[in-house]
């Protein structure tokens, strides 16, 4: 303080611009320091620029103070992973509902995660989605071919493996890439909002929750119904993701913003449409097929 006061007294008019520069530097240094400090400090710093996030702040403070400081333990210990399962039933419910009903202007990570990302939700949502896709794809395939003379029902167990590969790849590698990219951009452009890897994984995992009811709806063999549910699910999960990552890239180049947000959206659409095309056979495509080809239909779709 004393060092900034001195030039202010003696060189009022000469170096006003410099003074402004120095002040600007001082604030940025402050932010950097805050970034290094964990938990509360960092949280407060990242919250101040967002005026619309004021509401959760009041309630957050209490929970943050009650939870106490987090210990840092090495990653090979059991306690390290226990941190990611430190949630209760109502937390999971709130997080799922929050991901299914996004609210404009509410950042999912700030409102729901409270700097306490969990792995329970992402893992079990992904697992449920894998089996939901495989099982309902199988049922819809059965319903489409019901009554065909040459059709013989098969459980198509291999679809579980394929669905697991697709969904776990999406839920882990996309966050990894996004995290790496945001880290790289954060070095170039001073950003007030930064997310940890676990938070990104958590958002991605919970954003898949809406697909579980959608996939169950896909059992009904009406194409229009399937496309409606796809569009609704895409809109909901996509808006959660876009609204969450918007503050993280907001100060960046417009080109980068468009690239990041469109990549997030395109990958989301790719997953949903890809799953629908692969696991759920279209009635139109199969109906004109010859009776001899019907038995081969499950392997070609």
């Amino acid at each position: 303080m004393a060092s900034t006061n001195d030039p202010f007294q003696f060189q009022e008019f000469e170096e006003a611009g410099n003074l402004l520069e120095a002040n600007r530097d001082a604030t940025t240094i402050n932010i950097e320091e805050d970034d290094i400090k964990p938990d509360k400090q960092r949280k407060a710093a990242s919250f101040t620029p967002d005026g619309d996030d004021e509401d959760p702040l009041a309630s957050d403070d209490k929970t943050e103070l009650l939870s106490g400081p987090k210990k840092s333990v090495p990653f090979w210990t059991f306690e390290y992973y226990q941190r990611f399962f430190d949630i209760e039933t109502h937390h999971v419910k709130e997080r799922i509902i929050g991901s299914v009903l996004p609210w404009p202007g509410k950042n999912y990570i700030h409102v729901h995660l409270h700097r306490n990302p969990d792995l329970y939700g992402p893992f079990w949502i992904c697992t449920t989605l894998v089996f939901a896709i495989a099982i309902s794809g199988n049922i819809s395939n059965f319903l489409v071919h019901l009554g065909k003379p040459n059709y013989k029902y098969t459980p198509e167990f291999r679809k579980v493996t394929i669905a697991a590969t697709a969904i776990f790849t999406y839920a882990w590698f996309v966050p990894l890439a996004l995290w790496g990219f945001l880290l790289w951009r954060n070095n170039k452009i001073m950003n007030l909002v930064s997310y940890s890897f676990m938070e990104i994984v958590c958002v991605y995992g919970y954003s898949l929750a809406i697909y579980i009811p959608a996939v169950v709806l896909w059992i009904i063999p009406f194409e229009w119904l399937r496309w409606c549910s796809i569009v609704v699910a895409l809109f909901l999960s996509g808006s959660v993701l876009v609204m969450t990552f918007w503050p993280a890239v907001r100060d960046d180049h417009p080109k980068v913003i468009i690239a990041v947000l469109s990549a997030i959206t395109v990958l989301n659409i790719l997953l949903a449409v890809g799953c629908k095309a692969y696991f759920f056979s279209k009635p139109e495509a199969v109906l004109p097929a010859a009776a001899t080809e019907v038995t081969k239909a499950p392997s070609s779709t």
């Binding site: 949630i87 039933t89 079990w124 697992t127 089996f131 099982i135 199988n138 029902y153 459980p155 167990f157």
Partner: peptide
């Protein structure tokens, strides 16, 4: 507070096994 979180995976586990049996 966490009973439901523990019971759900168990439910899913037996559901998948039940599905394998039913579709056999």
């Amino acid at each position: 507070d966490r009973k439901a979180l523990v019971v759900y995976p168990v439910f899913l586990f037996y559901f998948v096994i039940g599905w394998m049996i039913l579709t056999f």
